[in-house]
């Protein structure tokens, strides 16, 4: 039986299988069609119907369910999630599993299309070591991402000593997994397939 205890392992393996069968476009279709529009319909219903309030409900429930280390804060027309210990990426790192070039892309891969339909844009960074942050605002709100600690205070993951321990992928007012820019060259788009993570 395919279990949920090691779901993140076979989920990540599946990205590589799909990439081999149908290339990058098939992986993107999988994140949108299978995850966003099928698996995560409960998230979709909450967020399409209730906007930021729905996001608070969804992520509070699901991150608690997955035993994540996280903080959720919000201001006027913005919600911020600081992922201090991503259980999903953490599982892969601890078990030395890395078949797909950037596992972390899957979040933007399904959340991005959902936010686009719901009328939101995303500022986001992930460091490939189980830490990331997200800010969602209405697409009409052109405010930049918050400054260090401005929204999340001491929970701002960017204040952690190890935040820059891995290469950081950066998104600004995006809803597309392929919009990423690398830390080393924030003005240049990253390849869709950067070098695979290597477990520490």
């Amino acid at each position: 039986m395919l279990g949920c205890y090691d779901f993140c392992g076979h989920y990540e393996w599946t990205f590589a299988w799909l990439d081999d069968k149908g290339g990058h476009d098939l992986v993107r279709e999988y994140w949108d069609e299978a995850i966003h529009r099928d698996s995560q319909t409960h998230a979709r219903d909450l967020i399409m119907g209730q906007g930021i309030e729905g996001m608070k409900k969804y992520w509070s429930h699901t991150l608690d369910h997955e035993a994540a280390g996280f903080a959720i804060t919000h201001g006027e027309d913005v919600i911020r999630i600081d992922m201090l210990e991503c259980p999903s990426k953490g599982f892969l790192i601890r078990n030395g599993l890395a078949q797909y070039p950037d596992y972390c892309d899957h979040c933007m891969g399904w959340i991005g299309p959902l936010m686009k339909e719901a009328g939101f844009v995303i500022d986001h960074e992930h460091n490939h070591r189980g830490r990331c942050w997200w800010e969602m605002r209405s697409r009409e709100n052109l405010a930049p991402a918050s400054a260090l600690g401005e929204l999340a205070g001491a929970n701002d993951v960017r204040l952690r000593d190890d935040w820059k321990s891995g290469p950081i992928d950066h998104y600004e007012q995006s809803t597309d997994a392929d919009d990423k820019q690398c830390q080393a060259a924030v003005t240049s788009p990253c390849s869709h397939h950067p070098q695979a993570d290597s477990p520490p």
Partner: peptide
């Protein structure tokens, strides 16, 4: 006996929804 280990004693059951959705997609 398991090949991969996690820090929590049981998995998150909502992942069964993703497993079912993955089968449907493929």
């Amino acid at each position: 006996p398991l090949p991969y280990t996690d820090t929590k004693p049981v998995g998150a059951s909502d992942f069964y929804m993703a497993i079912n959705a993955t089968f449907r997609f493929i």
